[in-house]
Amino acid sequence: MAGIRMQGIVKTFGKTTAIKEISLEVKDGEFLVLLGPSGCGKTTLLRCIAGLETVDAGRIFIGDRDVTDLPPRHRNIAMVFQSYAVFPHMTVRSNIGFGLRMKRVPKPQLERRVQEGAALLALEPFLDRYPAQLSGGQRQRVAVARALVMDAPVLLMDEPLSNLDALLRLQARADLKRLHREVKRTTVYVTHDQVEAMSMGDRIAVMREGVIEQCEPPMQLYTNPASQFVGGFIGSPPMNFLRGRTKAGAFEGEGFSLPMDGSRVEDGRELLLGIRAEQIRFGERGVPARVQVVEPLGATALVTVLVGKVPVKVDAPVNTTVRPDQNVSLAFEPADIRWMDATTGAALAH
């Protein structure tokens, strides 16, 4: 078994820098998710680990081995691709056994491991079919089985669920999670879907423009986002932000003023007040706002209110009495507020 260590990875494509000096460690057996919007460099980073891209600077270690200058086949990794990359000219059986054949695994052992892999992903009935005769979900499972039978200590997955329809994706997500618990491979999983990331990752590395903004366990990320970007990217609805300025120990926003324990922050600083939708209550006193839309979602109702001109999402009980155009006050605990610097977006230490 082996962890992954990246030191100062830089990757450029022509004039654009895809990855700006990333250092990251993935522990042995950990499920790490690389999360970010498209173009943030998450897939590039994964491909650098796989050896499908060569890095411009930095070193990559898998276990204790420096693999930076090794081709993919010598890195002891297995990978699941976004398009699945199931070989169309081979049967499911040959697809799953392909890697083992390349490694010249003896035939009886090869057949046994293909059977095991197929069993793990419920593919036994399809072993002699060609990929064209399979559904998208089945092809995805072939790709996973093909990677798993390699018994490589590191498993890399590049948005393996993004081509499945919503219902199938839920099922496949649960399957992958179960598989990881069973086989305990060090896994790096790339996705742009924050729900997927939250539900699967031991830790999530949120990437943006070639930089890792924050890398922590999901709930930590959710409750203590390191930046406005992370708060806005994680969670549905995203974290609300209100802009304002500190003045005499208080935070003054558009049409409201909140007391702060002003000892921490100097006067006249531009700040963002970050607050999660479920931590806002409609109260007697607080930030004045005007209700714009009420959307009942079943278990709760999502209420959009305007503070000045800024829309704020509030998670309210489904039987809430607020109506559009009603004036309300938003109340929340000071402890739930996350303060960010308005210019850099970085969270203030608390």
């Binding site: 086949r73 297995a78 990978m79 398009s83 990359a85 070989f87 169309p88 390349m102 490694k103 093909r146």
Partner: peptide, 16 residues
């Protein structure tokens, strides 16, 4: 012929 097919083969023990 999708490049990912060849890349997949390379992660599965093939040289270029």
């Amino acid at each position: 012929v999708s490049n990912e097919l060849e890349e997949a083969a390379m992660t599965l023990g093939c040289s270029r």
